[in-house]
Write a protein that binds this DNA or RNA. Sequence first.
DNA 1: TTACTGTTGTTACTAGCGGTAACCCGCAGT
DNA 2: ACTGCGGGTTACCGCTAGTAACAACAGTAA
Lengths: 215, 215
Amino acid sequence: MESTEHSGRQQTATERRRRELLEAAERIVLRDGPDASMNAIAAEAGITKPILYRHFGDKGGLYRALAVRHTDALLANLATALDAPVLRRDRVEATLDAYLLAIEARPQVYRFLMHPSDEDNAPESGFDVGRHSAPLLRRLGEELAKVITDRLDLGPGGELTARVWGHGIVGMMHGAGDWWLRERPCSREQLVTQLADLLWGQLAAVEDRVGGPGF
Amino acid sequence: MESTEHSGRQQTATERRRRELLEAAERIVLRDGPDASMNAIAAEAGITKPILYRHFGDKGGLYRALAVRHTDALLANLATALDAPVLRRDRVEATLDAYLLAIEARPQVYRFLMHPSDEDNAPESGFDVGRHSAPLLRRLGEELAKVITDRLDLGPGGELTARVWGHGIVGMMHGAGDWWLRERPCSREQLVTQLADLLWGQLAAVEDRVGGPGF
DNA sequence: TTACTGTTGTTACTAGCGGTAACCCGCAGT
DNA sequence: ACTGCGGGTTACCGCTAGTAACAACAGTAA
């Protein structure tokens, strides 16, 4: 079969198409929020639904493709913040800040990413839709756990500790970030400082209240 | 109008009915997960859809009613754990344990509660569907912030700090709990200990790794 | 020229969802 | 007997995700 070059060209062509479709989808999600309909996305791309389904299988597939894109970008950002050769406290603050900056810049995308609507990912989907299809928060947690394992000396059983901390810290970022994004009770810098203080044991260090209004 | 007694009896009757409907809804949600349909719930209750809509307005209303129930129960549990007259570290561990025990006992309900599907709550819905309709995590965060403010002496600006920490800690519980519930990488006691260690500043206290495989 | 094959796209449909309008029945009060 | 009225039903609307079937055009072979 001498169609290798042919199929190669086809490959790049379909991949270009795929990217175009994803960009259209992103525009619509950015406009309509997490419940953007397939019809709307297809219309934005100038085509009709069945093509979307040929490319992505189902709505979850399209969602996963979009999520992988942004998750990869966000992870790259966080990785550079996490690798900076500065004090540990500064690294933590830089990482928190990078995350908050990202969700602040594109709240719609962020909300879309955080609502995976679960549904197990089929073990395979014919294509390599990407092995990274795990929801964003789990990927973040695992990556952070890896960094913690690499950087800190946690002694025996340290891997488990690192994973617990990784997912715990990511959950903290997510929870606090979600609340902050809605209520905007303070500046980003303040939030970062307070969260880093929390991680630095201030909850344990601060004094009990002595003469409360209670009695 | 002398129908006060009458309307009073009606009141209790409709409230009893409401409770029955909520119990049926709970059974279905427990069985079908977060995407239980109104038809299925109505069928389980032995009636048809419009009655559900007369009682709860829309699906969000029914969801909110269910959520308020469980949120109240969970909050009561956590409050007792949070009020125990023991060391602060023990209180924190007891609270984490209470939360994890709850989500371990009823994972389906837990997943249902955590997926609010957002959508602003209408400012009012005629009835007092309950002012507590804020999603579970936000309520938990605010309650925890209250306790922190009451118990700890955070100095000036302490209210903001307490709220940041409240939402951050709740997010940490949620994130770590979600991961733990899926992968079950360790016992509940271990998880509680590791998370408490994290909150107690171990992340800052532990040593840098000196001779890693990287170099 | 003719016929086969594959890709790209369409129209037109199904099944099921949340939600609602209109009607039905039994039971209070006058 | 007639009138309300609350609990209940049937039958529908508009919308969604997802699919089947067909149409048009490429390239390739006989």
